[in-house]
């Protein structure tokens, strides 16, 4: 969908900005919001570019940097921390060969840390896209990554 179609479908109104930004990001191809899209959104909605940028940069789910097809969000809040999220982070970094906020060269994964995902019952936990993965161990993490790679046929 183009920016103007998205605005049309959600309603051209400031209140809908977050939802519009979600949609723009989802249809960007690289999980990010491009400056061209912000310029166009500014024109269509009459909100200044600085204001849109300031708003989206406030929320952790939005990014202006291109990201991978799958965004891994590993929780590092205290309940996951005490269950060993730091080890999981190490395992992920090693498995993917990237650091926090890095993207794998094949653009498959971006690794981010996140505040509590609301799935602390299965701490340590992470989300990949919309899926939750809990009770993580280094071994499990490796299998999860492999299975996603496999399902993508790579």
């Amino acid at each position: 969908m183009t920016v103007s179609e998205i605005v049309e479908s959600r309603g051209n109104c400031r209140e809908n900005l977050l939802q519009i930004l979600h949609d723009i990001q989802d249809s960007s191809g690289d999980n990010s919001i491009h400056t061209e899209a912000i310029d166009e959104l500014s024109r269509i909605m009459g909100i200044t570019v600085a204001d849109i940028t300031g708003t989206l940069s406030f929320y952790t789910m939005f990014s202006m940097k291109p990201r991978g097809r799958h965004i891994i969000r590993l929780c590092d809040s205290p309940p996951c921390y005490i269950m060993g999220s730091e080890n999981i982070l190490d395992a992920l970094q090693k498995k993917l060969g990237i650091k926090i906020d890095g993207t794998t060269p094949d653009k498959a994964f971006t690794l981010e840390t996140s505040s509590c995902l609301g799935t602390c019952g299965v701490a340590p936990a992470m989300m990949i896209g919309d899926e939750v993965y809990g009770n993580l161990t280094a071994d499990k993490v490796s299998k999860i990554i492999d299975s996603i790679r496999k399902s993508e046929g790579r």
Binding site: T48, A50, D51, T53, G54, T55, S57, F58
Partner: peptide, 10 residues
């Protein structure tokens, strides 16, 4: 009424 500036990040 120009709006070049806005708070960024948090």
């Amino acid at each position: 009424g120009v709006g070049s500036l806005a708070p960024r990040l948090r």
